[in-house]
Design a protein around this nucleic acid. Structure first.
Lengths: 185, 185
DNA sequence: GGACCTATTTATAATTG
DNA sequence: TCAATTATAAATAGGTC
């Protein structure tokens, strides 16, 4: 007909997809891509990756490198009660950051590597085997609800201010780094 | 020039990168890419996405869309830690991974989200600028001291896009960048 | 609705500065 | 070393069946 019949991708429109069908298709495709990318990242760099994806009105999907459950559990497990001085936004962030900072990373790299490699192969095979079922990996059955975007407006102001400064920032140089910090092999 | 001078990507080697330097570079790049992809996914499909990345020997990086804080809370709140003996509701990925190799890894990650990513960048800048963050960004009081100036350039772009996103929130393009640098060896 | 196809865009490994 | 460039592989939006 009069349609152009453009088959290739025409560009990424980074906006919410209106059409529900297309949105779901995009969700499936891109989710898989993100997982794949994460898998590659983990495999190539040895990092551990955990991903949680919660589509609206559906169950969450997850991708965990070794084990995202353990990851989260560990993380939040050591969490402590938030401080009462938090203005609107709970202190969880702070706690997490602190934990992230104070956590010591000792990971068995060799095992990780093997596991990552295995994982990679498995994922590829899994993808090939049941493409139809690739959307059905329900990890958790926990209901996930969307949060409001209250922080966005707050963030906006900060960003606007910050952007100006960052823009004029290019020439400045300076970095504190610790030598020998990377302790791996 | 007799050399081929192949500059483009020659293919993804699905294996651990041997060179430490290259591995770090790849980690930074791909981590950002994964975050970007995840942000695109979240934006386009409205899904909630949270990513946790733990590089070896360094502190975890996190990313996510609306509010993984709540996500994690719900997870850990309603879902007890997955027991390896009764993994009926566990994810298939993890199951396959466990089957592939039964080695368990020690991980610790912090999980945050898109705004956490913003915060991460913002916090870094704010810290160095000594900006009074109490009014706007008070969430990240956590001690994260691995930021440096090297990310300014990348951060600029990220912030610019981010700003658009925050301003229009959902109709414009935008993606969060993590800090592009971790401590070098 | 899903699997495959293809044109085009995007990501990124290697290279250069 | 770090950032920028570039050429190539990979991702993917839309179409077809």
């Amino acid at each position: 007909m009069s349609t152009r019949l453009i088959k290739g991708r025409k560009g990424v429109r980074l906006a919410r997809i209106e059409n529900q069908t297309n949105r779901q298709v995009t969700f499936s495709k891109r989710r898989n891509s993100v997982f794949k990318k994460a898998n590659e990242l983990a495999t190539m760099t040895g990092a551990e990756v955990g991903i949680i994806v919660c589509p609206q009105g559906s169950k969450p999907y997850s991708f965990g490198h070794p084990n995202i459950n353990e990851t989260i559990n560990k993380y939040v497990g050591e969490e402590r009660p938030p401080s009462p001085s938090s203005p609107g936004i709970d202190d969880k962030y702070v706690q997490m950051f602190r934990k992230a900072n104070s956590s010591e990373l000792n990971i068995r790299l060799n095992s990780l590597q093997d596991q990552l490699d295995f994982e990679l192969n498995l994922r590829s095979k899994l993808k090939q085997m049941n493409k139809s079922a690739e959307n059905q990996q329900e990890w958790f059955k926990g209901p996930i609800e969307k949060m409001n975007y209250t922080e966005a407006s707050m963030l906006k102001e900060g960003l606007e201010d910050l952007l100006l400064k960052v823009k004029n920032y290019g020439t400045e140089r300076g970095y504190g780094y610790e030598n020998g910090k990377w302790k791996a092999e």
